[in-house]
Design a protein around this nucleic acid. Sequence first.
DNA 1: TAGACGTATGAACAGATGTTCATACGTCTG
DNA 2: CAGACGTATGAACATCTGTTCATACGTCTA
Lengths: 121, 121
Amino acid sequence: MKGDLVCLQKHELSKMDTQIKKKIPCDEDIFSLSDTFKLLSDSTRLKIIFALMNKELCVCDIGEVVGMTGSAVSHQLRLLRCASLVKYRKSGKQVFYSLDDEHVYGIIAQTYEHIKHKKGE
Amino acid sequence: MKGDLVCLQKHELSKMDTQIKKKIPCDEDIFSLSDTFKLLSDSTRLKIIFALMNKELCVCDIGEVVGMTGSAVSHQLRLLRCASLVKYRKSGKQVFYSLDDEHVYGIIAQTYEHIKHKKGE
DNA sequence: TAGACGTATGAACAGATGTTCATACGTCTG
DNA sequence: CAGACGTATGAACATCTGTTCATACGTCTA
């Protein structure tokens, strides 16, 4: 659309919009980022991650700790598994899950500080 | 439910589940965390945030840079505004938005490193 | 003042997401 | 082997979410 060019000149963006666009990560990276945040944006999954920060746990116990059915937990664990955020170890009937990614811990910790900081304001 | 106790003893969680539960943040904090991540889990909003990292921009230009209509951008800016992630400055007809929270920059940067690291594995 | 422009917002729609339910699979135990 | 148990998974359902469309509001300008 040619109207856009007029608009851009008016707003003093002119050809600078190309520069700004370049600083925005490519779609692939943007989607990776949003997918990662999406995994962390559910309260059940967050609780699971916090629970696993302390100790390896089996599905049933995770369900007990976070207050959900084994089925619901298993569905969420599947997502965390696919994203390599948790790993599992089978032992007889049980499957023990633990965190597989130390980076996520840092991301959550930083965000936790953020909301605490915001609360204090 | 009394059945749970049996289950817990079997899995050697016994009274330790209370300890683990204590390490999980309260619901209020969990919801704050998930809300924050939810805001970052949309590709449009991420692009907006990246665009604003460089320079204050008006709604129309943001739309141009991220490739969306002004209306869609405005709806998303409203969410970012409510969460105090962006601030705005009115100048005549236009409204210029800029980032209001430097912490978010750190969270995104760390997550960006994370996905880059994962890619390299 | 009338119209153009930039922005904001509610309603409607489509798509994504999380839980529940039913069911199936593998493992242990009587 | 049969049943109990822990876990996994597909389908169905309800809910949430993001975009579009229509519209409204404020500001600038002819």
